[in-house]
Simulated scan of single mutants.
Amino acid sequence: MSGRAHRIEVWAPDGVAEVTAGDDLVALVLAATGGGSDLADGDVVCLTSKVVSKAEGRVRRGDRDEAIEEETVRVVARRGATRIVRNRLGLTMAAAGVDASNVEVGSVVLLPLDPDASARDLRAGLLERAGVNVAVVVTDTSGRAWREGQTDLAVGAAGLVVAEDHAGRTDPYGNPLAVTLPAVADEIAGAAELAQGKLAARPLAIVRGRADLVLPAGEHGPGATSLVRAEGADFFGYGAREAVVRALAGDAGDRAPFGSPATPAELRSSLGAVVGTVTGEPGAAGLALPADADRTAVAAVLFAHGWRLDAWEPGVVDAGSGVVCRVSPVTT
C-alpha cells in the first residue's frame, strides 16, 4: 500500500436499545462503544435525528398531515399527495421531515427543535464522561433535486468543519478553484448511513479517519445550520408549476424565494422571450415593448425577476405603435 493512501473507517454498533423520551443519549453512545473505549479523539459520532427526537420528546400522536402543516414555513412544490416544503429549520424536505416509520402506529416523529444544540450537548457530554474530543453529526434522510432515491445529510453538527472551502486554491494542474465547497458534514452523514442501514436498528455510527475536520474541545463551529441557504439564495425556491402560479398571482409575500433583482440585461432578455423585441433601459426612458405585449405576462416576468411595473403607457417603438413599460427593482 502506498504511503500516501488514506483510509476512512465507518462502523455502526448493534444492540442499541429502543429510545424513549428523557433517555440519556450520552449514556446510549457510551453503552454502545464499550463505555467510550471504542472512541478516539478525532472520531465523528453520527446519530440519526429520529433517535435524538425520541429522546427529546418530539414524538406525538395524531394526524401526520397536521404535523406537516405545523412544521411547514412554506410549500415549495406539490405533486399529488407529495409536498416538498421549507420547514422551520430552513430545510427543504418532503413532508417537512415528519416521519411515521419506526414508531408506534398512530404516532409521528418530528425533527429536533434545534439539531445543532442537540449535537453540542452530546459532544460536551462525551468529553465530560469519556474524555474524548469527538465531533457529532445528527443525520436525517432527504431526497435530492434531479436525482432518484434518497441519501442522509447532516441536520445538526458540533465540533466539525461542516464544509471545506477550497476557493483560492489550485488543483494539481494549476487550475484555480473558485467555488469548490465540499459539504463534508453531509458526506459523513451519507457514509454513516451505509453502515447503519435503514432496517437494522443501528442508529449510531462512528466515522474515523478525518480528524483534521474535528475542532478543538470547546469549539463547536457553525453547525449544520450554516449549510442551509438563506431564503432567496436558492436557485430553486419554488417548483416549476408553483413558480408560474406565484409570479402570476404577484403577492408581495411570495417575492423572497425568487431572489434578488435580476440585472437589466437579464430582465430584457427574459421579457424578450415572452413578448418579442425589447429595447431601452429601466429608468426614466423605460423599456419599449411591442404593442401587442400582454401586460399580465409582463408583470409576471417582472415579479419573478425582482422588478415591479410602475407604468404602462402607449408609445412609439421603432417608428410604430408600442408600449413604454416603466419599471423599478424591488428592494427590501
Score class of each variant (00 low, 15 high):
168 G>I: 10
118 S>Q: 06
160 L>D: 07
193 E>I: 01
243 A>F: 04
160 L>Y: 12
199 L>T: 15
42 G>L: 10
115 P>T: 09
42 G>V: 05
159 G>D: 10
255 R>M: 04
298 V>I: 00
1 M>A: 08
155 V>I: 15
201 A>K: 15
62 G>C: 12
130 A>M: 12
121 D>A: 13
318 D>S: 07
185 A>W: 05
43 D>H: 13
168 G>D: 12
225 T>G: 13
323 V>Q: 01
305 H>G: 01
57 G>I: 08
163 A>I: 10
18 E>R: 11
38 D>T: 06
12 A>I: 11
273 A>V: 01
102 N>L: 12
305 H>C: 01
81 A>V: 15
134 V>K: 09
149 G>T: 07
166 H>D: 05
180 T>K: 13
109 V>G: 05
312 W>Y: 00
20 T>C: 06
144 R>Q: 07
305 H>Y: 00
5 A>D: 09
31 A>N: 09
141 T>A: 11
272 G>P: 00
124 A>P: 00
195 A>V: 13
321 S>G: 13
287 L>G: 00
87 N>C: 12
66 E>W: 03
42 G>D: 07
324 V>L: 01
280 G>R: 07
50 K>S: 07
209 G>A: 03
268 R>C: 03
235 F>R: 13
71 E>H: 10
191 A>N: 04
51 V>A: 10
53 S>C: 05
312 W>Q: 00
41 D>E: 11
298 V>W: 01
89 L>S: 08
78 R>W: 08
105 V>Q: 11
128 E>S: 10
5 A>I: 09
228 V>M: 07
183 A>S: 08
108 V>Q: 03
313 E>V: 10
216 P>Y: 01
325 C>G: 01
317 V>A: 02
10 V>L: 13
240 A>L: 15
11 W>S: 03
274 V>I: 03
219 E>W: 03
22 G>R: 05
276 G>A: 01
148 E>Y: 13
64 R>I: 08
183 A>D: 06
264 P>T: 02
173 Y>T: 07
322 G>P: 04
23 D>C: 04
267 L>K: 02
48 T>Q: 12
109 V>F: 10
110 L>V: 09
131 G>A: 05
41 D>Y: 14
319 A>E: 15
277 T>C: 00
84 I>P: 01
157 A>T: 03
106 G>S: 07
314 P>H: 03
320 G>T: 02
25 L>R: 11
9 E>N: 04
253 G>I: 07
7 R>D: 14
280 G>C: 02
275 V>E: 00
275 V>N: 00
218 G>N: 03
224 A>R: 05
277 T>I: 03
255 R>V: 07
47 L>P: 14
120 R>L: 03
227 L>V: 02
52 V>E: 10
330 V>C: 04
101 S>Y: 12
